[in-house]
Computed example of a mutant assay.
Amino acid sequence: MTPPVTIPLRPGATPSGPGRDGRDVRWEAHRTKRRRQLVEAALKAIRKHGAGVGMDEIAASAGTSKTVLYRHLGDRAGLYRAVVTAVDERILEEFTAAEAVVGERDTVERIAAMVRAYLSMVEKDPEIYRFVMTRPLETTQGEDDHPDPVHQITDRIAGRLTQALREHLVATGREDAAVLAPVWGTGIVGLVQSAAEHWLSSRRTEDSPLTPDAVTDAVVSLIRPALTEGRR
């Protein structure tokens, strides 16, 4: 059974400050809770109906009306951003857990653990992955007040990879190559995304599709030489 995506409180976190009474705080807490419930219902609807799920189906999953959805999440683009935020938090939680198991002994294995965690999530929730990657046109403009949600996810993942790569290069006496860490981190994200999309497509047509471990091994086999070069 697919583990539930944890809905972060950050997007609707209760603000604090002077001039706010108890009723304001309670109302904000209610809105945060209701928003979380609606996003959870949206995730269930996406799993059931696929990435092309409609607002009517999401409202039915939540046991409410589209009017309530719009009130708490805005339009479809607002719903999309809320779902992406939840998925973003889940990915980073999975990365942290995967890294904790491996530890900091082997950077290649740390990266492999993150890649494997990402692909495992794609395998468990393919429709949610498709929903996130097939974003509404309204969310692709990259406005200052609403930056591209997918870019926010990939930037955070690339940041985690970049940190691991930079630490590895410095620790192995390759400080001069540490400047390449952001390039490699971003490149790995693109590689894994492309591999994941190809993998999902092939799973529909192949009798014996590759496992997340097999795809991870294929990706890491391209990365390992660059990271172990200084040890030879």
Rank of each mutant, 00 (worst) to 15 (best):
P4E: 10
T6G: 14
P8R: 14
L9R: 14
R10H: 14
G12Y: 02
P15G: 10
S16Y: 00
G22V: 00
R23C: 01
R23T: 00
V25M: 03
V25R: 00
W27P: 04
W27Y: 01
W27Q: 03
T32L: 00
R34Q: 00
R35P: 11
R36V: 09
L38W: 05
A42H: 11
K44S: 07
A45T: 05
I46N: 10
R47L: 01
R47K: 10
K48W: 03
K48F: 01
K48R: 12
H49P: 14
G52M: 06
V53D: 10
V53R: 14
V53W: 14
V53E: 05
V53Q: 11
G54D: 08
M55H: 07
E57T: 02
E57D: 12
I58R: 13
A59P: 12
A59G: 14
G63C: 05
T64P: 15
S65A: 04
K66I: 00
D75V: 09
L79D: 02
R81I: 01
A82T: 02
A86D: 09
V87L: 11
D88N: 07
L92E: 00
E93K: 09
A97V: 05
A97N: 10
A98E: 05
E99G: 12
E99R: 15
V102R: 11
E104I: 12
R105I: 13
D106G: 10
I111W: 12
A113M: 06
V115G: 12
R116W: 04
A117I: 14
Y118I: 15
S120G: 06
S120N: 10
E127R: 13
Y129Q: 13
Y129T: 13
R130G: 03
R130P: 02
F131I: 08
V132Q: 04
M133D: 01
T134N: 13
R135C: 04
R135D: 00
P136D: 04
L137F: 04
E138R: 15
T140S: 10
T140G: 07
G142P: 02
D144Q: 07
D144V: 10
P147Y: 04
D148Q: 04
P149M: 11
I153K: 11
T154V: 06
T154N: 12
D155A: 07
R156S: 13
I157G: 01
T162H: 13
Q163I: 09
A164N: 10
L165I: 06
R166D: 11
R166L: 12
L169A: 07
V170E: 04
A171P: 11
A171G: 05
G173M: 08
G173P: 14
G173A: 03
A177L: 09
A177K: 12
A177T: 05
A178E: 06
V179N: 03
P182F: 02
V183G: 05
T186I: 06
L191C: 00
V192D: 00
E197A: 09
H198F: 03
W199K: 11
S201C: 05
R204V: 03
T205V: 12
S208N: 08
T211M: 12
V215Q: 14
L222D: 06
I223P: 15
I223Y: 08
R224A: 06
P225I: 04
A226Q: 15
T228S: 13
R232V: 02
